[in-house]
Every structure is written in C-alpha cells, then in structure tokens.
C-alpha cells in the first residue's frame, strides 16, 4: 500500500476505491472552503488595506495604528472587557450554585426548573432586547414603576451613559444561564455515588463534599462554559443593536457593534477587517490561555 500510494496511478486507484468517502464529505468541504477558509484569509489581507470602490490600497499596518489611537475603539474594547470579565464568572457561578441546589431534587422538580431557566433563552436576542427596553423605559417601564412604589428614585437605565452599560449587564445577568445549568446537571449526574458515600464514611459534610468532589469533577464542564461564554460575550451585538445602538454617546459600544458600524455604515471594510482581526486574536489568546490554565489538572 505504502509504495503504490506514491505513484500517480496509485493515488488514482486509491481515490476511486475511496470515492464514496470523499464524495460524501465534498459538500461540507466546499462550504467550509468558500465560507470559512476563504473569508478568514481574505479578511486577514483586507486588514492591511484601505478599501475603495475602484480598488484597494495596501497601507500596511496603518489600520491598526489608527485603531490604537482611536478613542471609540478603546471605549469599545473597554466595554467588551468589562462585560466579559464581570458577566462570564458571575454567570457560571450562578449556574453552578443553582445546579448544585437542583441536583438532589426529584426528576419532576428538576424538569420544571430546567424549563423555567432555559425558556428565556428560547426567545431571540431581538425579542429579549425589545422586552428589556420596555422594562427599562424611564417613564412607563415596569422597573421604574416598582422603584417608585417602594420609594426609590426612578433610574435613567439605558438613557444615561452612566447606567446604560450596567443596565445591559443586569439584563444579561437576569437571563438565567439555562444552557450552563443543563450542562452542570448532566455532569453532576455522571459523578459516581460511591465517591460521596466514601466521603461520608470519612465524616465529610455537604460543603466539604461539594468542594472536594463535585467542584473538581465538573471542572471539564466549567472549562467548556468559560471558553464558550467568553467567546459569546465578546460577540454581543443583537441586544446593543436593539436596545442602545451603542449609545448614549459611546457608552455601550462593543467591539462587534463597532465592526458593524465601521463596515456597514461607513463602508470602511479595511478598517473593519482590522477590528475583526483584533477580535479574532483576543478570542484565540483567551481560548488558548483558558484551555491551558483550566485543563492542566482535569483528571479523574
């Protein structure tokens, strides 16, 4: 086999022998090449160019230099970082806590809560954004009505640069982390009961058992959630588009919202590609770091 595979004839007959395998994955490969590989490479090249209707101009690193001196870009980066650094750990901790309380309950009760936590995630970002914009309405919104009832001053919520980003984060926080809870529950189900029984014989209480058995054994799930949620957090767009349009001022600009505006309002495709490349680099670095950092001792 090894020697014939090196000749052209050998390659030909090998391909014919395996034609179904290659044929069956062909549609996937074509789409993969056309809509992932080609765009990523092209985006990389575009980030060093200035886009023009009559042809692009190669401008080296100018797009990147411009961005590093751009106040809005730093604002967008800062907002994205704040949302990610605060919301990702918070969401995962809440999910882990809720799942831990939920785990020992009966299947029927569990089923109800799983439904309650996952249901809001079923509605689209547009729908949730619309609802929350209504809840936050400074004059007629439910939140200010409640605050008024309990004697607290009405809040400007999304209408003030001081509170807009915080309001967005509150919304993300209150949308229960349904996916994470489901994943934690299924991970907890897989932990052998003997481990807990053995710990009980040794006299371990609930809290010690949780820290020494549950927490380490759901670590793989935690790792997955941290990576996935970080990536998702860097990509927040829909809520911003529906609720604040990046404002007031630039107070809720995020990286992806800026990419959208640069590309499809200003038609600065080169500059927007440079922003996308920076987003790509940040996400890659985070993924690699988190994977290294958190997976170093995933051992059962």
């Amino acid at each position: 086999m090894k020697t014939t595979a090196l000749t052209l004839k050998g390659i030909g007959s090998y391909l014919i022998k395996k034609k179904w395998a290659y044929l069956f994955i062909l549609p996937n490969i074509l789409i993969f090449l056309a809509f992932i590989v080609y765009p990523v490479l092209y985006s990389f090249l575009l980030s060093f160019q200035e886009y023009g209707v009559w042809g692009n101009e190669w401008i080296g690193l100018d797009n990147f230099f411009y961005l590093f001196s751009d106040y809005v870009f730093w604002q967008a980066l800062k907002n994205t970082a704040i949302v990610t650094v605060v919301m990702v750990p918070l969401g995962i901790i809440v999910a882990l806590l809720l799942a831990s309380f939920l785990h020992p309950l009966s299947e029927r009760v569990k089923g109800f809560f799983r439904m309650a936590y996952y249901l809001p995630g079923v509605a689209s970002g547009v729908v949730m954004g619309m609802i929350w914009r209504w809840l936050y309405d400074p004059n007629f919104g439910l939140f200010n009505l409640i605050l008024e009832k309990i004697g607290v001053a009405a809040q400007p919520w999304l209408t003030s640069p001081k509170t807009a980003l915080g309001s967005l984060m509150l919304m993300i926080f209150m949308a229960a982390p349904g996916t994470a809870i489901i994943l934690y529950l299924s991970a907890m189900k897989k932990i052998p009961k003997e481990l807990y029984e053995a710990a009980e014989i040794d006299g371990a209480g609930s809290i010690i058992k949780w820290f020494k058995i549950t927490l380490p054994l759901v670590k793989a799930t935690t790792l997955y959630l941290v990576i996935i949620n970080t990536i998702a957090s860097f990509q927040i767009f829909t809520q911003i588009f529906v609720m604040t349009q990046g404002g007031p001022g630039y107070s809720t600009y995020t990286l992806v919202y800026q990419i959208y505006m640069t590309a499809f309002r200003d038609f600065e495709f080169g500059l927007a590609s440079a922003q996308a490349m920076i987003l790509f680099a940040i996400i890659s670095i985070f993924s690699v770091l988190q994977f290294k950092f958190l997976s170093s001792d995933v051992e059962y």
């Binding site: 990509q235 987003l279 790509f280």
Partner: peptide, 8 residues
Amino acid sequence: PAQVTLIP
C-alpha cells in the same frame, strides 16, 4: 468568530 468572516 462569525464577525471575522462577515465582511469578505
């Protein structure tokens, strides 16, 4: 991220 492929 999908945004990287958006413009091309």
